[in-house]
């Protein structure tokens, strides 16, 4: 690994962990890029930061999102119907970077669009656009060596998933490749599922943190301030996706309402999480 301390994600978590930080727990909203178009995505990213987001996960739309529930699947379909490509997603990040140089951006998606672009071409363009991390859901560490090396060389962190089914040897294997943060999948299921058990999550996250120093974010099934706060007590960061994407789905025709509802949900999570932290 190259020196990661200069990277945005590392700076972000380091700052959070300093004593006296007013934001010791990170909030990481996810939206699908290009849903319903890339201009909307760029505007929403700014709103998310205003509402209290520390890091943004930006979904790369894919035709076959096998790990996603119906809400994100539908978002992918809307984005693809508008013709959004991986190149377009990188352009959105570049546009965001012109107005925001501090909020880390993590791209989340599936392997095939990255394979098609080519690892090296992707790494070059993603780095030039200001991408900080890459999470490819269908890329376990066993298959990841080449891609991790390419993106690491240009200063981009590789985010990996851990799940309730990951035994210790897999946790260690993932930690070998992971940088930035580890994304703990809080439940056995797809994004947006409803069976979140916060007690189990806290136990498992504590266990992971006993094995690695890499920050741990938790996602899947966090939908409101209450679940965000419950999970944040054990984790370094919480990820909220389907609940936000659902707002985009229902209010895309009314930009003011869409932005207001997103601001309100993320804001309520921010308040609840900061209360836990203090």
């Amino acid at each position: 690994m190259t020196n990661t301390s200069q990277r945005r994600l590392a700076r972000c978590f380091e700052k959070a962990q300093q004593s006296g930080s007013d934001r010791s727990k990170m909030i990481v909203p996810y939206i699908t890029a290009g849903d319903p178009d890339t201009d909307t995505t760029l505007a929403l990213m700014n709103t998310l930061v205003d509402a209290g987001a520390d890091i943004i996960e930006l979904g790369i739309p894919f035709s076959d999102p096998m790990a996603d529930g119906p809400v994100v699947q539908a978002a992918c379909e809307r984005a693809l119907a508008g013709g959004t490509t991986l190149n377009d997603v990188l352009d959105v990040v570049a546009a965001f970077r012109k107005i925001n140089d501090h909020t880390p951006i993590v791209l989340m998606g599936y392997m095939n669009p990255v394979e098609t672009m080519g690892y090296e071409a992707f790494a070059q363009k993603a780095s030039a656009s200001g991408v900080d991390g890459l999470l490819t859901v269908d890329l376990p560490p066993e298959e990841a060596a080449d891609l991790v090396a390419q993106v690491d060389a240009v200063g981009i962190d590789s985010i990996f998933l851990l799940s309730p089914t990951s035994p210790d040897d897999r946790i260690k294997a993932v930690c070998e490749y992971a940088s930035g943060y580890i994304y703990y999948v809080s439940l056995k299921g797809v994004t947006g599922a409803a069976n979140l058990d916060t007690v189990e999550v806290s136990k498992k996250v504590a266990h992971i943190k006993s094995i690695t120093d890499i920050p741990v974010a938790v996602g899947f099934g966090i939908r409101d301030a209450e679940s965000a706060a419950a999970v944040a007590s054990a984790a370094d960061a919480i990820v909220v996706g389907s609940a936000l994407v659902s707002i985009v789905e229902h209010h895309a025709n009314d930009a003011a309402t869409m932005h207001e509802k997103l601001r309100s949900l993320v804001g309520s999570m921010r308040a609840a999480v900061d209360k836990i932290a203090s």
Binding site: A67, E143, L161, R170
Partner: peptide, 8 residues
């Protein structure tokens, strides 16, 4: 090439 939950 599968998500982590299915690896085990």
């Amino acid at each position: 090439f599968i998500a982590e939950t299915l690896m085990d």
